[in-house]
Amino acid sequence: MVVEEVSDEELMARLGGGEMSALEQLARRHEDKILSLAYRVLGRWDLAEDVAQETFLRVYTAAKRYKARGKFTSWLYRIVLNLCVDSQRKSRRGALRLEEVGVQIAEKHRDDPCEKDELSRAVKAAVDALPRRQRLAVVLHRYGGFGHRDISEITGWSESAVESLLVRAYANLRDKLGEMKDFLE
């Protein structure tokens, strides 16, 4: 028996109609991708979790007013990205406090099993070192799997701006990782 998967837009319509299980389904469907994306932007799992949770609460709040004008995922990831930016702003404001607990944060990063590998850490460092807009573009493109047009919809930047950011970002990454390559080998 083939079970037809309900579309995101249909789930939003159901949520708007008061069916709360639709929110849970949306959360299960998009949880991993949102967490990965938020983690890659923010560099901390605790902040990524907050962003993911807040994203679904915003989805719930907006369900009644939601109108499927563009892709649901573009709308969803716009929320994610805005929350990431807010989170970064808050982190900058609390920089002094974070410095005080810097040791714990460093420990937490060391414990991440996915980043034990030297090459993985080198790539993360290279991506983190990019200017903010280039980093966001690369995270959405390389790791989020979004095309130029989707990135343009998510970020609100023009398509030509996205293309230009990606070209510069990949050129920078090629230079940075080229320097590291000799060291890693």
């Binding site: 967490l35 983690y39 890659r40 099993p113 996915c114 993985s120 790539v123 390389r142 790791y143």
Partner: peptide, 10 residues
């Protein structure tokens, strides 16, 4: 090479 930065979100 960029794909080497794996993230386990589970």
């Amino acid at each position: 090479v960029l794909g080497e930065w794996g993230v386990e979100a589970g």
